[in-house]
Design a protein around this nucleic acid. Structure first.
Length: 421
RNA sequence: GUGAGUGUAGCUCAGGAGGUUAGAGCACCAGAUUGUGGCUCUGGGGGCCGUGGGUUCGAGUCCCAUCACUCACCCCA
């Protein structure tokens, strides 16, 4: 236990972390181009925030939250998602007073108490964007296109964008009733979860993977046919906008997201090559959430992408494809006196922006050469007693395999020129 | 929370239906003309056999429990 990370968590080690850095850079760059500003919120919040916003009947709130009492008897929850905290911050700092719409992005760890499996962890990382203050369908298209652009920019291919409209507080209740009525006759044939859903959230039955439930719901009228005038128009324009900017999509009338706050647009990006957890990201519109959290009516739309899953989809790509190790210089010093000179040398080189390393284990020259080779050193500076007495060092080109004497004074300038800096 | 599978060296794995000091490859360290990398050769260090019980003269091997990992269900990123 002492030497084991808790279940569902893990360390990101050198060799793997470079991939993370690569994805993080790409995402930040993209957000800058789309004019989104970063926001950083705490990784824990008052439990109430998630219960109210994500929804009492959702799996996240019902069974997946890391909740505890702090020493002041406050109920605290490690954030299971990023939208609610962003909404909270938006209201707390009165960001509605800024130029509209407010376009934000975030990145960080999220926590859900779930049984781990491929692509699912208890601590995982998401990044997402949230836009407040516009109900324009064109904005939905922008948000979706940003998610799609990210996957394109890092070379993840073969994804499917699924799209649906889940209606609004005006048209959804009647659709819910419709489902209830339709299914009432089949009540006994439903799976256990679904008979519960019939009461709590009938729309989720559409999403059930049980064979029986699927058959029952097969002929249920679709949500898209029950949208109110405004929602239907909105959905139509989202679709048209996506076509206008050439984002391909697939309408899935059964797409129902697991968080209660979604209205109208709901979408998910799926990698069919992945296992059971194949959703790389998803999001949608949540026009009522800000109000639920105590603010004025403020339409909003956003998405979240799972980093671990993006990495899974990227698996085929090797680190070398994404990340080039900076070539450097290895200083091989022989003997104690030379060792000190070696330290001075690497310090000087580093100050010049050249990657430099030396030996700290009093190893033989042979071993030091091996080390130099391993860290991909382009040059090795060999300093022995003899050379130092003459004020000179040996400069070895590891790639060409030859070496020559250079005076110690001019070595830095020399390398600076050679290493292109 | 439910189900199935798997836990032997840093990594990937061997260990015939229980029997001596638990092996290999890779990695690591050292040496092969005591100042020169990659290739090769030689040697070396490393293992509470996940943990705890039990059966047995004897358990890495059989039984039970437990923990962890993996995959799936549920749900989602």
């Amino acid at each position: 236990m002492l030497t084991k990370a808790p279940r569902g968590t893990g360390d990101i080690l050198p060799g793997e972390v470079e991939k993370w850095q690569y994805l993080e850079e790409q995402f930040k760059k993209l957000c800058r181009d789309y004019n989104y500003k970063e926001i950083r919120t705490p990784i824990f919040e008052h439990t109430e925030l998630f219960v109210r916003s994500v929804g009492e009947d959702t799996d996240i709130v019902g069974k997946e939250m890391y909740t505890f009492l702090d020493k002041g008897d406050r109920s605290i929850t490690l954030r299971p998602e990023g939208t609610a905290p962003t909404v909270r911050a938006y209201l707390q700092h009165k960001l509605y007073g800024q130029a509209q719409p407010v376009k934000l992005f975030y990145y960080g760890p999220m926590f859900r108490y779930d049984r781990p499996q491929a692509g699912r962890f208890r601590q995982f990382h998401q990044w997402g964007v949230e836009v407040f203050g516009s109900r324009e369908p064109l904005l939905d298209a922008e948000v979706i296109s940003l998610a799609v652009a990210f996957f394109n920019s890092v070379g993840i291919e073969g994804l499917i964008l699924e799209l649906n409209s889940v209606g609004c507080s005006k048209c959804r209740p009647s659709y819910r009733e419709e489902i209830r009525k339709y299914i009432a006759g089949y009540r006994d044939s439903l799976c256990l979860d679904c008979s519960r859903r019939l009461e709590t959230n009938p729309m989720r039955i559409l999403d059930c993977k049980e064979k029986n439930c699927k058959e029952i719901t097969n002929n249920i009228p679709e949500m898209t046919g029950h949208l109110c005038e405004e929602c239907r128009e909105h959905f139509k324009e989202v679709v048209e906008s996506l076509e206008a900017i050439k984002v391909s999509y697939r309408i899935n009338p059964r797409l129902v997201r697991g968080l209660d706050y979604y209205t109208r647009t709901a979408f998910e990006i799926i990698d069919p090559q992945l296992g059971a957890q194949n959703s790389l990201g998803g999001g949608g519109r949540y026009d009522d959430l800000v109000e639920v959290c105590g603010g004025n009516t403020t339409p909003a739309v956003g998405f979240a992408i799972g980093l671990e899953r993006a990495l899974l989809a990227l698996k085929s790509k090797s680190i070398e494809d994404l990340y080039q190790e900076k070539p450097g210089v290895f200083v091989a010093a022989l003997g104690n006196k030379a060792g000190m000179e070696g330290l001075k040398m690497v310090t000087e080189l580093r100050h010049e922006g050249i990657k430099a390393e030396k030996d700290y284990l009093h190893r033989s020259l042979k071993a030091q050469m091996k080390q130099a080779d391993r860290i991909n050193a382009r040059y090795v500076i060999i300093m022995g007693e003899e050379e130092l007495e003459k004020g000179k060092v040996l400069l070895r080109d590891m790639k060409e395999g030859h070496q020559r004497e250079v005076t110690k004074k001019e070595i830095t300038a020399h390398l600076k020129e050679k290493m292109g800096r």
